[in-house]
Design a protein around this nucleic acid. Sequence first.
DNA 1: CCTTGTAGGATTTTCGAAATTATTGCGGTC
DNA 2: GACCGCAATAATTTCGAAAATCCTACAAGG
Lengths: 227, 227
Amino acid sequence: MASKSSIASSLTNQLRTAILSGSFAPDSRLRLEELGASYGVSLSPVREALLRLCGEGFVVSEDQRGFRVAQASLRNLQEVIALRAILEPYALRESIDQGDVRWEESLVAVFHRLTRIEQKDGFVPFIAEWERAHREFHLCLVAGCDMPMLQQICAQLHDQADRYRRLYLTKQPPQRNVAREHVEIVEAVLARDKDRACSLLLEHTRQTGALVHAFMMSANDSAQELK
Amino acid sequence: MASKSSIASSLTNQLRTAILSGSFAPDSRLRLEELGASYGVSLSPVREALLRLCGEGFVVSEDQRGFRVAQASLRNLQEVIALRAILEPYALRESIDQGDVRWEESLVAVFHRLTRIEQKDGFVPFIAEWERAHREFHLCLVAGCDMPMLQQICAQLHDQADRYRRLYLTKQPPQRNVAREHVEIVEAVLARDKDRACSLLLEHTRQTGALVHAFMMSANDSAQELK
DNA sequence: CCTTGTAGGATTTTCGAAATTATTGCGGTC
DNA sequence: GACCGCAATAATTTCGAAAATCCTACAAGG
């Protein structure tokens, strides 16, 4: 079922989740024929999907040289973290200012779903269902303000950061109580305590960022040693 | 001449400048055949160019319904202004911190070019040469820091704001001494006075934004009266 | 009078092949 | 032995047409 939309659209989503989940290594080439063959479509929709992902920053293209997965570097991770540190607190502040009851409702709803997933028996992170809900939760936090461009930028930055997390924290046991941090953020938001909510969110993204950063450095170090 | 790059790339640039200069009205449909015919190319590169412009925010696409020029609204203009007010001063501060001598050089160079154009006999704003230099100047201001994503976002926001300026300030005589403001910004940057440079830049973009905003409101008002 | 259904035309989307451009491997030269 | 040109190969880019989808107008039914 599922397709009122075009092949290119659904392929865009498939490829995005594939890249986000690390199925394609950073900086690896994305050959059109290869992708077209493996997804059973012609070259045009593949091309279109990759072009869209270029706009989102997950893919880069060079004229006459095709497409590549965006490379992952320490410097880029730092930039993503820095930009999130500026924009997400700003967006959250605006959302708390302007967000109506419907926004609060959807935040509570998606947070409830996230919590239920975490409480299930045998829960482990990186399960697709949790990833989806977690992403939606973070997007919802900044969705209360009437600023579509800002929301889109926040979504892209979140996805970029998430790619690093899933690349470098693979099967790492959670080092801290992320669920607890989520609870506190929601409580502060519902209490309309802007300063507290923003600083909690800032700390939340900073800590994850720092952790990924540390793992990435150690991974790079051991890669260096192999030479 | 002119083409080591693909047709799609050059078409992207042509269409972007056309949209930026107001040749296509906001929210107007962009028919593929029409564009292909008028530029003498097939549908594939047209499609590709429009897809890229989607990623830059100048075009929007809806599945199975083609492409449209991004619409221009007061709310969107406000958002662009707000985002510039956050990101450009931040980027300028980082640039002044990290920018090396080569950055200073290129800033001085492009500023000199801009000044020369303004001093020419019979200078009027909106001449393509000045627009190009002016754009480059503003991009150069934030190009000193090693943050490619931030620079790209700043470029997009600048272009978005510029579209509004060129849509609504058409043939308006300049209401203030923009050249003077540019000089002061450059002086502050070269003196490495971060606070002054950032507040000057902020004021500069704010004033232009407010002016465009005012003209857009009055244009909307008179449009309302026609009903 | 308003709604619903249906044919026709217009437009987008997809395909498969041709044209253009990069890459690779090899032989020859300095 | 290293470097350059040159063919052979592989990949991307573009084209033109076929397929799928949307929009409009018009007629029939409630």
